[in-house]
Design a protein around this nucleic acid. Sequence first.
DNA 1: ACCCAGGGTCATA
DNA 2: TATGACCATGGG
Length: 216
Amino acid sequence: MSKPLFESVYDTLRTHHGRQRWWPAESAFEMMVGAVLTQNTAWTNVERAIDNLEQAAMLAPRPILNCDRPRLAELLRPSGYFNVKARRLRALCQWYVDEGGMECLKRRQTRALRESLLAVNGIGPETADDILLYAFKRPVFVIDAYTRRMFSRLGLIDAEAPYEELRAQFEAGLPPGARLFNEYHALIVTHGKHICQARPKCGDCVLAAQCAYVHS
DNA sequence: ACCCAGGGTCATA
DNA sequence: TATGACCATGGG
């Protein structure tokens, strides 16, 4: 009854949607690629682009760096923004190689790793945190558009607040740990996708009982 | 025909 | 620091 709100919302989502087992990728590198390709883009489109890379045997840093950009862009076409994403994907691969690969990266402290990621062109706070949480299993809470919409509607946050402020708010309002943050963000996206969407009301939503909007 | 999607950069004030 | 333009495909 007095359980913190961020936790009780988690419980509701977890009960209703079940375990998510994110991120949908077969390797840490594939996960990072997906994080860049899914920027402001529907996941179904990202899957096609990743399939294209796989079919072309290019789902690895070296092949991507050795590919000319027009050809890479063509493979990325279904994910949208393909010229921009071709550039961003190469920047990611260049970083990955320059940093010495996965084994080296895994040894870095979370702070340093985050700063390093943010310095890569095309990686902003959300993409960096996706990568930290799902590829490196670090305890950072990812804030995305669904999170802003849902939790402001629930009356728990200010949707317009800066990214870092919201991240701090979630991380302070939950028991720490990558395990929980991982599952929570996945649940938020899953819930947002097939229920809330951009609807202004959510009376038939599982969160209705906890939603400030429907009580105002 | 319209809106939106698991954002980020860059130029401008 | 805070807006706005821009990137582009595919599904509802």
